[in-house]
Amino acid sequence: MVTKARHSQTPQTHEERIEAAVTKKKARNSRPFPAASFQEALEFAKAIFDFGSGQAVRRVSVFDHLQKSPESSASRQLITNAGKYGLTEGGYQAEFLKLTSDGLKAVDDELPPREQSRARIALAIERIDSFRALYERFLGNKLPLRAALIDAAKDAGVPEDLAEEAVDTFVINLRFVGLLQTLSGAERIVSVEHFLDTLPAKADSRVLSDFARPQLDQYRVENGAMVTAPKAEFDAMCFYITPIGEEGSEQRKHSDLFVSSIVEPALEPFGLKLVRADAIDKPGTITRQIIDCILQSRLVIADLSFHNPNVFYELALRHAARLPIVQISRTQERLPFDVNQMRTIRIDTSDIYSLVPKLETHRAEISSQVRRALDDPEAVDNPISTFYPALRMSIS
């Protein structure tokens, strides 16, 4: 008999965890911005558009089409976020969901690119008060340091405990809608007019297809050895599944760079210790210790670059356990079908000129996904949870 995974993230009792979750949810009700990126909400709006040909759709029917439970917390959050962005009408208890007029423009790929982009910018940035304030404050400048953005978010009325999340979502949205561009070797916040002038006035199927493709599909290791620890240590751990390779190899250099420059800085706000397999140094079976980390760590980040077979094996274990995971990869990899259905942060490492200007954006992308995974660890979305929702590994 398949039993539910036991994965305690705190030493609290079951009742205390429920009370803490309710308190946290109530506190989050005051969030003055959506709890996900615009791209994620747009993908949901696009599914509504495709399913109903632009007409209102039954909420239950569209989620059945998406093979998701309409009553799950993840599905409810999708509806809430789409509504906050102004893409859809109808709450998570409504019988029907309908796209707004701007929502229709944002998802209709037959519209001229300029008209579609104008609608997306209005919804993703201008409609959200805090995002609009940040955009207007830094318009025409290089993307400022994260600390400066956080201070500006607080000035714009974002509660202090939500400022980092607001900044991450703002930066991701800014890049997705085209207002954050690499110019003169740095990421700069450009005007709406500047961006729209780069687009064709009329729809062109080839150009529009390239533009409409989600642009987002596109750090410090602890010195010393890691010791196998009790549950409390796993609760403070993020295990990094990555191709490591031999000392001096391309894979080792790649992994070291991602750890030090992207992944660990993205984890800093969450207080999680990043652990890689080569940091495990304790007598015993290394394979058992790695599996312990995969199945018991609070979070796993998996780098799918180089199509390393060990990485995919370890990823499958985490999927089967239905525990929180964030996927990243180089843009040049063509991900296998089984895993490309999950959101993957794509990082262009083709040359230093493509990578360096976007480091801060990639950190924000990872932080945003980590935050969502930790806030709702039960809302795990992978092929196993989608097609076999009752299957769950037993972890003792």
Rank of each mutant, 00 (worst) to 15 (best):
E16A: 14
E16G: 09
A21N: 07
K24L: 09
P32G: 11
P32Y: 15
F33C: 08
P34E: 03
A36H: 14
F38S: 01
F44G: 05
A47Y: 04
D50R: 15
S53M: 05
H65S: 02
K68I: 02
S72V: 02
A74W: 15
S75K: 05
L78S: 01
I79S: 13
A82Y: 07
G91H: 07
Q93N: 10
F96E: 11
L99Q: 04
G103W: 05
A106T: 07
A106G: 08
D108T: 06
D108F: 06
E110Q: 15
I125S: 04
I128Q: 06
D129V: 07
D129C: 02
S130Y: 10
R137K: 02
R146P: 01
A147N: 00
A148E: 14
D151Q: 04
K154V: 12
D161P: 04
E164Y: 09
F170V: 02
I172K: 11
Q181H: 02
S184I: 04
A186M: 12
R188H: 05
A203W: 04
V207I: 15
L208P: 08
L208H: 13
R213S: 13
Q215M: 09
Q215N: 06
R220F: 13
K231I: 06
A232C: 01
F234M: 13
F234T: 10
M237F: 13
P243M: 12
P243I: 12
I244F: 05
G245S: 06
E246S: 03
S249I: 09
S249Q: 05
E250A: 02
R252T: 03
H254G: 13
S255F: 14
F258A: 11
P265S: 00
E268Q: 13
K273W: 02
V275T: 11
D278N: 02
K282F: 14
Q289A: 11
Q296Y: 02
I301L: 10
N310W: 11
Y313N: 08
R318G: 01
R322G: 04
V326C: 00
L335F: 15
V339T: 00
Q341S: 00
D351N: 09
L359G: 07
S368K: 12
Q369G: 05
V370T: 05
D375V: 03
E378I: 08
A379Y: 03
A379P: 08
V380Y: 07
V380T: 08
D381C: 03
L391G: 05
S394W: 06
S394Q: 07
S396V: 15
